[in-house]
């Protein structure tokens, strides 16, 4: 699904290149659950941003579902956002002015999903995450865990083939974090959604099927997790 070849990212400052990523080459297949780990400043988030096309690599080749992303125009990229990619953020990033239901609805509006179907999909999501009673609340009326559930619901409602999550549990207490990770695992196993997450936590990484260890912008290790559960 994702092919990265020799991805480099650096910022040139007074002729000195400070590298964020170096020679990153890897591929992620449909249905994988990949965790990107590493210390602060290792380039985890940058890698995820490149995967999510929020940043462009300075150098290297990136193919998403067989398409060369580097040469993609904005229109095409937006099409990918609408149909294939769902984002989940550490700080949830819900739109404060929108209610829970409206936040979930927003991507469907951009995807031009017709009204009745929109309503049924939102109802479906709310039902699935046990938030029917909260549909008219605004984000700041919810706990962090609940906000992240809305964030995930928003990412899922457009039925993406991949979810990119940047420290999805970073702001959550451990009980809530476990709940989110269970959800990811379930989505991955039952619906075959590809998941790429950035995380600090070994526990969280253990939920995935594969771990990429980054250090100073270089992939040090690429291990397959032995499923113990």
């Amino acid at each position: 699904m994702i092919e990265l070849k020799n991805i480099e990212k650096y910022y040139a400052n007074k002729g000195v290149k400070s590298y964020i990523l170096r020679h990153v080459t890897t591929s992620i297949k449909q249905g994988e659950f990949v965790s990107i780990m590493g210390p602060s400043g290792a380039g985890k988030s940058t890698l995820l941003n490149i995967l999510g096309m929020l940043e462009e690599p300075t150098y290297g080749q990136y193919e998403f579902m067989g398409e060369d992303v580097v040469s993609l125009n904005e229109r095409k990229r937006i099409e990918l956002y609408r149909n294939h990619i769902g984002f989940v953020f550490q700080a949830y990033h819900l739109i404060d002015e929108m209610t829970v239901a409206e936040n979930i609805e927003a991507p469907l509006l951009y995807k031009k999903v017709p009204g009745p179907e929109r309503r049924s999909r939102i109802a479906d999501m709310l039902d699935r995450f046990n938030m029917v009673a909260k549909s008219d609340l605004f984000p700041n009326q919810l706990s962090g865990g609940q906000q992240q559930l809305v964030g995930i619901a928003r990412a899922l409602v457009a039925q993406p083939s991949i979810i990119l999550a940047d420290e999805p549990t970073g702001n959550l207490q451990s009980a809530q974090a476990l709940q989110i990770m269970d959800l990811f695992k379930k989505l991955n196993e039952e619906e075959g959604i590809t998941i790429v997450q950035v995380t600090h936590s070994e526990v969280n990484a253990a939920y995935g099927s594969r771990i990429l260890h980054l250090l100073d912008g270089v992939i040090k290790e690429d291990v397959t997790v032995q499923q113990t559960v």
Binding site: E74, R75, E79, I95, Y110
Partner: peptide, 8 residues
């Protein structure tokens, strides 16, 4: 957020 949700 709107942009990554697919807003032009």
């Amino acid at each position: 957020i709107r942009k990554v949700m697919g807003s032009r």
